[in-house]
Design a binder for these strands. Structure first.
Lengths: 331, 331
DNA sequence: AACAATAACACAAACGTTTGCGTATACTTG
DNA sequence: CAAGTATACGCAAACGTTTGTGTTATTGTT
């Protein structure tokens, strides 16, 4: 039997309500002398609060849920770190739930869990939620926000980078460095992220009056292997002089495969990645990237959720920047 | 107002107990006809169970907690995937809590959370728990297990790789490939993992009658930067012909720095890593490693916790293997 | 036909908190 | 000094479930 508030009350010769108020620091409800006494007794008895009971009685939980894809990408850590950074300062607990990879069953289960636990908010990270899951989440009324993810307007509030801008800026950078034939690797045509980036790419090309060969667009996801196979598609004598990869891992796949073909990066082929995680700095050559600030995305998302003025949460884009490293060169 | 079991009972014209039993599938307590009816009404009303109330009343939760360091290492993902694999099949929820990096405050908070929530078990991943946290966990009586972590005997049950064997096997491999002067990089002398690996290293060296120069042992942790600075310590003309790094990232740090010194790996220096995560396959040269099966560690740990024959949990080592890649050569 | 046994359900207590309200006591104020 | 007002605390209901123990019908047995 665990020691409860009741035991503490009895031992301290006060009522349970007093113990409750002391232990949860409801100011102006007790004399500091009583408080000290109660706290001491509680400590002596080894009292541990039962969070379930508390949440049940108070109708509010202090836990934030992060629903995340069992992502092959590697920026989730940074987002989570950002979330923890502000959650911790605010005294909230964070629970993380994996929702698999395009796995509606697991998604439903994760969403069901957050609803059953009536968490105070949920952050959906790098995940396009299925319609089913999304609508249960919406009807539950639990505040939620999408982080770094497909942000079709009707989805709900999001904090992310502007994927259109990402595609546009990357392309523009390469064009301005003399590249006219630019490959785009790993974009998922089914996803919002992918199509946005592709549109940005096309816009930049058009703006500079450059034709796009559809053969330069090799779809895929965010994996290393997608980079490898895409480069295999381009072959040993690629028509393109530069490639934009959908993630750091994908870029590495491209570079590895290029190397296997005897192609020097960046001497014979420039490769640029999207994300700019630590991988771009430890890999050789270091990889020029469109860098997103994932830590800030996490921070901003958490802050938005915690911000309790009851205005609806504002969606926003966080700035991206291009970081020049050694995988690209001026033509 | 959320719809409760009471509302369902009223709408279905049965008692709350019946609804409860139907919805939680307590066999032999109701007619299947009633059950169908109740389930339909519940669905129509959009009933969502309140997990807090249920856990409170039944004194048992179905959530498994994973306490993890905000790890700079990168194998945690695989362990978590393994945990999820068996937890999901078993119908358990998993919540992940970050406990920072050697941060007693965060550790305490994480442990406090799992105790307050009275989870059914906790998996401590790659984390040496402070005495304070450990003893609260122990007195709480919550089943727990350490995964891939410092496993001093008195800590409690663990599932991990045998760090002594890791140090020993890595060293032996290099010796048998003709290396006599072998560096050991990134071992933390304060940690059990580090000292075990060092002991294994020394034993292998002694076994082959090789002297150890203390200068070859460069302490550190598991980071990329530790690899870089260690290699800087060895300098442009290292005395050692091979280096064992404490993690894949550390190995990459070593190789990058070596390359900056104009040293070819493996032509002029062999580098071997411990862990064998995906990094060793995407980096060039691919990295020979002592490979741990983190996914299985996760699976085994979770299974051990869930296994409810009430014998105490058995500690065990999972096998390691050496995977030869391109960062080492025969001398 | 009488009775026991079982199936199907309802009642109500319990889980450990929080919190609105009530009530003494002590302290102001005119 | 009476009346009003804080202050400090206790009482008890409520939160939404689970579950042990009744309480009826229904079925089976002799």
């Amino acid at each position: 039997m665990r020691v409860t508030i009741k035991d503490v009350a009895q031992a301290a010769n006060v009522s349970v309500s007093t113990v409750s108020r002391v232990l949860s620091n409801k100011e102006n409800f007790f004399a500091s002398k009583t408080a000290d006494h109660v706290r001491k007794v509680a400590a002596d008895l080894g009292y541990q609060r039962n969070a379930y009971a508390a949440d049940l009685a108070s109708h509010q939980s202090d836990v934030l849920a992060v629903v995340i894809s069992a992502t092959k990408s590697n920026f989730a850590d940074e987002i989570i770190a950002g979330i923890h950074d502000v959650a911790t300062k605010n005294g909230n607990s964070v629970m993380i739930l994996y929702a698999g990879e395009n796995n509606p069953t697991l998604q439903d289960k994760a969403i069901k869990t957050v609803i059953e636990r009536d968490v105070m908010g949920v952050l959906i990270v790098a995940l396009e939620l299925g319609d089913e899951s999304l609508s249960s989440l919406k009807t539950s009324g639990i505040p939620h926000i999408f982080l770094s993810t497909a942000a079709k307007e009707n989805l709900g509030p999001f904090i992310a980078s502007d994927d259109h801008a990402i595609g546009y800026e990357a392309t523009k950078y390469l064009i301005e460095h003399g590249h006219h034939k630019i490959g785009l690797v790993g974009m998922d045509e089914q996803s919002f992220v992918g199509t946005q980036r592709m549109t940005g790419y096309r816009e930049a090309m058009a703006e500079y009056g450059l034709a796009v060969n559809e053969d330069w667009l090799v779809p895929g996801y965010f994996t290393f292997e997608d980079g490898e196979t895409a480069m295999a598609h381009f072959g040993k004598q690629p028509e393109v002089t530069a490639i934009i990869a959908n993630s750091d891992l994908t870029a590495i796949g491209v570079i590895d495969q290029a190397r296997d073909y005897g192609l020097e990066v960046p001497a014979q082929l420039s490769v640029m990645s999207i994300d700019g995680t630590k991988l771009t700095r430890i890999f050789r050559p270091t990889i020029t990237s469109v860098t997103q600030d994932f830590f800030q995305i996490g921070r901003a998302g958490c802050a938005a959720l915690l911000n309790d003025d009851n205005e609806p949460i504002q969606s926003k884009f966080l700035p991206i920047k291009i970081v020049e490293r050694n995988s690209t060169r001026q033509l």
